[in-house]
Design a protein around this nucleic acid. Structure first.
Lengths: 124, 124
DNA sequence: GAGATATCCGTGTGGCTGCACGGATATCTC
DNA sequence: GAGATATCCGTGCAGCCACACGGATATCTC
């Protein structure tokens, strides 16, 4: 169904440097973890506060404890946060192996972008 | 239901610097656009090749034209890519107002991260 | 103008997902 | 040890989403 490439040169160049389907899947998986208001804010809170228990996280975000717990469950399963039991409480922090690029480029840079609504209407 | 904060100091600090629910929503919206293998690779291809038509994009990614078209539809609706009609073809490129942080920090930095599987098992 | 072609759009659908709910478990308090 | 508490887990469900499919539209070719 696909015709001969209209611009074979650019197709070749794109094809060459493009992330593979598998790499695309990996990237999407990681970004999906951040692409949720609750999880993004959980991670941000842990980046700022270093360590917090579930109840305090829920309070800081203004969400139900269930929502916080669920978000943490997902992040923990993905290995992005680590639990530390102390008595009946569980304190979470960003995992040792938390991907630096994610921390640096998503948590710290992209959040700034979201401070302002996206301007998709700007002309030079 | 929520008890008094266990660590009021850290809760206050997190609360202070945390993105608001609305900001979290905005961030999640933008990241959701990248958090899909097809869309992420479409954007990456356009970043590399500058401009490509739908058929060539589908060919470069190795996906159906329908999948490419749908991905572009979403990105276009969000204002991240711009179409340029030429005859019966439509060439796409990253929009003028494409958020720089997204381009810089997601397209160019995070892709590198996805080259390797995430190592959630690393100890010092 | 007739047929082929590149893309768009609306609709249908199977699969995923965020979270509430109910119950289990381990811990603290008395 | 009895009751309260912090968190976890499994389940259920409503909402969303990526894409296939069918049809429409505009363009090119002859």
């Amino acid at each position: 169904m696909t015709p001969h490439p209209v611009d074979p040169e650019r197709v070749a160049r794109a094809r060459d440097r493009l992330p593979s389907a598998e790499e695309g899947d990996r990237l999407a998986s990681v970004l999906t973890l951040m692409a949720d208001p609750t999880r993004a804010r959980l991670l941000y809170a842990l980046d700022v506060a270093e360590e917090l228990c579930v109840g305090d996280l829920a309070m800081a975000l203004g969400v139900s404890e269930d929502a916080a717990s669920y978000g943490l469950r997902v992040l923990r399963t993905a290995g992005l946060v680590t639990p530390r039991r102390q008595g009946r409480m569980v304190f979470y922090r960003l995992a040792e192996g938390f991907p630096e690029p994610l921390r640096e480029h998503c948590l710290r840079q992209l959040i700034e972008m979201s401070r302002r609504p996206i301007d998709d209407d700007q002309d030079d």
